[in-house]
Design a protein around this nucleic acid. Structure first.
Lengths: 158, 158
DNA sequence: CGTGAAATATGTATCGT
DNA sequence: ACGATACATATTTCACG
């Protein structure tokens, strides 16, 4: 069903996950392919959607101090349509960088980035308290992001 | 101290955070600059470390089913050197994609990606239980990542 | 998938503001 | 100091074997 990923594709993805600023020539050399063959594969991987996006990661520290919040949200009722509604709200909120739907007592875990506590309070009002189905939430304040790795887990080998 | 970021730099960063696969020409046109002037700025932003990395984001779903775990870790003692040791271990563990040091009862929040529960149990043994200073941990199992946005918060305007 | 040639982009030097 | 223009170099990309 999913497009077959061979060793060459895996090698390409591994490289691009680490650094996608390399030229196609460099990439081709590293994976042992001619530039046109390599380019063709990369384009296929993009078109298939396996490569979703190519982005620049910035140094948030240099951009000015900010707080990372881990927010655990518990909902009143376990209803699919209400979850969908919350997902929509979360996607619209700039401050929410990540959202995981989880099982157990907690229903959602958010990673929220704000400039300061004032901005966080505003966020809580506009996003969390605005949600009628929200029962309660707990905030874990983080001053330090110890690790941030965007790479996906690649299949061991086919 | 930090390199001054003007409106043009901000515009460049905004673009590259969304899509860094654009050519320098396209980027230059979008921010209203000549290609050489734009290139010069991009290089400066990379050199200053403000642009830390350029990466390809993959569609984890297409690569095969996997579980995202949100793990809350509580430590026995609040000691800096022991925290450092844990940070080191976490950085070495491939399964740990993110780690936030937080204040309150919980000391660390991890985002862990594994293929299945067997892999998760192995991870717990090798990373969490191996840590002498670890008091306890709670796992929130996520079957769905609702949102994942790698963009940093840019200064409003200078 | 590789080779070679055309199209395109990147990178440099110079000049102007 | 910074950006634009023009030119040289390098890369991407296509057609063909």
């Amino acid at each position: 069903m999913s497009a077959s990923i061979d060793r060459l594709d895996t090698a390409i993805l591994k490289q691009l996950q680490q650094d996608c600023s390399v030229t196609n020539q460099q990439l081709a050399e590293r994976v042992g392919l001619s530039p046109p063959a390599c380019l063709k594969r990369v384009r296929k991987l993009k078109q298939s959607g396996l490569i979703k996006q190519q982005v620049a990661l910035l140094d948030q520290e240099q951009l000015g101090a900010c707080l990372h919040m881990v927010v655990e949200v518990e909902m009143e009722r376990d209803r699919y349509d209400l979850y969908q509604q919350f997902a929509k709200r979360v996607n619209a909120a700039e401050e929410v960088k990540q959202c995981y739907q989880v099982t157990g007592e907690v229903d959602f875990v958010l990673i929220v980035v704000v400039a300061d506590m004032v901005a966080y309070e505003a966020f809580c009002r506009q996003v969390l308290y605005a949600e009628a189905n929200m029962k309660n939430f707990r905030t874990l304040i983080s001053m330090k992001r110890v690790k941030f790795d965007t790479s996906a887990v690649l299949p061991a080998s086919d």
